[in-house]
Simulated scan of single mutants.
Amino acid sequence: MLKIGITGGIGSGKSIVSEILRLYNIPVFDADTEAKKLNDRSPVIREKLIACFGKEVYDENGKLNRKRFAEIIFKNPDYLRKANSIIHPEVAKAFSLWAEQRNQYPIVAIEAALLFEADFQEYVDKVIAVYSPEALRIVRILSRDNTQESEVRKRMEGQLPEDDKRRRADFIVYNDPSHSLLQQISDIFARLCPPGAF
C-alpha cells in the first residue's frame, strides 16, 4: 500500500486535491475532521487536556469547548505546542488504524494542514504540497469564511511557511488558473504507480 500525504497552507486547495483523489477511488483521511472527533471522544485526549488546561475546556455534554480551548492555546505558543503534542499522536494512531482497515486499496492518503508540524510525514511514503499564491489564497478564504483579512493573515502566520512545505514535499501541485490540477495529479501518480494502479 502506498500512503500519500497532502498538505498546504490555508486556502491552497488541499480539499480539492483530496476530492480528485476520491474520484480515482483513493480513500482520503481528513486529519482536521478526525482531530475534532477525537477531541470529543478520546478519553486519552480528554484526560490530558483537562490535566493541562482545566475542566472548563469541556462543556456539560462532554464535548470540547472549542471557543474556550482556542482562547487558551492561541494566546500562548507554549500552550499551543502542548495541546498539539497531546492531540497529534492520537490522530496519527487513528490514521494508522484507518489505513490498516483499507488494505484492499493500493493507495490511501491523509490530508493535513499541519502534516509537517505534526510529523505525519513519518506515516506516509510521499508528500504532495498544494501551493497557491498568497493573494489568491486570501481571496478564497475571504469569500469562503466570514472573517477579516487580518485574521486570515494571522492564521497563515501560524502555519509552516509555504516555501518550507514545498522544500520538504516530494511533489508540488500548483493550484492557480494557469495549471491543471487533474493533469498534475495524473502526472504524479503515473510516476508513482505501476500501469493500471491509478
Rank of each mutant, 00 (worst) to 15 (best):
R41W: 00
V57K: 00
Q183T: 06
A129C: 15
E56Y: 05
F116S: 01
E151A: 13
I87M: 06
V173M: 06
K3L: 13
P177W: 04
G5D: 06
K37H: 11
D40L: 02
D176S: 14
I45N: 00
V130Q: 11
F116G: 00
F53M: 09
S132I: 05
E157S: 14
S180L: 10
I138M: 07
F29S: 11
S96D: 09
I188V: 07
R144C: 11
P77A: 02
I110E: 01
N65A: 15
N25S: 14
K165M: 12
Y24A: 15
G13C: 13
I50W: 03
K93I: 06
R68S: 04
I16T: 15
D176M: 08
S12W: 08
G9I: 10
L136I: 12
E56P: 01
R191Q: 15
F53L: 11
K154V: 01
N61G: 09
W98G: 00
I107F: 00
K154M: 07
E60S: 13
N175C: 07
K154G: 02
P177E: 02
K3D: 02
I110Q: 03
L64V: 02
I185E: 03
F189Y: 14
K67D: 07
R167W: 05
I26A: 01
T33C: 02
G8A: 12
F29L: 11
R168Q: 14
L181R: 10
R167P: 02
A112Q: 09
P161E: 12
V108R: 09
N76I: 00
D78K: 12
E157I: 02
E134Y: 02
E151R: 05
D187A: 15
L80I: 02
H88D: 05
S42E: 08
D176Y: 06
R41A: 04
K75F: 00
